[in-house]
């Protein structure tokens, strides 16, 4: 095995193991921490694909910002097994069916990509580097990019509106 392969399998085991631990952990704080481990593993995969920019942005945005807010909420709510409300059995079954449907969609989508994988575009491994990424985002995908920024702005305005409710 080459070093890249060893790293690949190590990161894969880390990602899958972390995800399993995240789902099965009883303590929500542990779940958040395992999710951060998963994000790190995925960032490692990005680096293996020579997409350093994506790797670091993944760390900054997900591990550094979103997960911190998750931790804030979970720590302040002080959740534990004792005061967790017992859910209705029907609710559990409905959740299972919904999750199964999502899995079905995922599998179908992955099967679809098999045809696309053959005609992959070769950019000499530069796709994930910031120059090419920036160029693509601001030329080919400028409209979706701007629309998503409007989405963020509206989310921000919404947060401010909710936060001002008190006074």
């Amino acid at each position: 095995m080459s070093i890249t392969e060893i790293l690949f399998w190590f990161l894969t085991a880390m990602a899958v193991g972390g995800a399993l631990m995240m789902v099965t952990s009883k303590n929500p704080v542990y779940s958040v921490l395992w999710l951060i481990v998963v994000f790190f593993a995925i960032s490692g995969h990005y680096i293996l694909l020579n997409a350093q920019f994506l790797a670091v942005v993944n760390i900054i945005v997900y591990a550094g910002a979103i997960m911190v807010l998750f931790l804030f909420v979970i720590m302040l709510m002080n959740m534990n097994a004792d005061n967790e409300p017992q859910k209705n059995i029907w609710l559990k079954i409905a959740g299972m069916i919904a999750g199964g449907c999502l899995l079905l969609v995922f599998i179908a989508a992955i099967r679809q990509t098999e045809a696309l994988q053959i005609q992959k575009v070769n950019t000499g491994g530069q796709t994930g580097l910031i120059h090419l990424l920036g160029k693509t985002l601001f030329t080919d995908y400028v409209l979706p990019f701007e629309i998503s920024s409007v989405l963020f702005l509206s989310a921000m305005v919404g947060a401010v509106v909710l936060g001002r409710k008190g006074d």
């Binding site: 951060i36 350093q52 920019f53 670091v56 942005v57 760390i59 900054i60 591990a63 550094g64 910002a65 911190v68 931790l71 804030f72 720590m75 580097l129 910031i130």
Partner: peptide
């Protein structure tokens, strides 16, 4: 690394975890 400054920023944002 060609994203050095972002790396600094990423590590900085992780510093919160030790405290929390």
């Amino acid at each position: 690394v060609n994203i050095g400054i972002l790396y600094v920023f990423g590590i900085l944002s992780l510093g919160v975890y030790g405290i929390m």
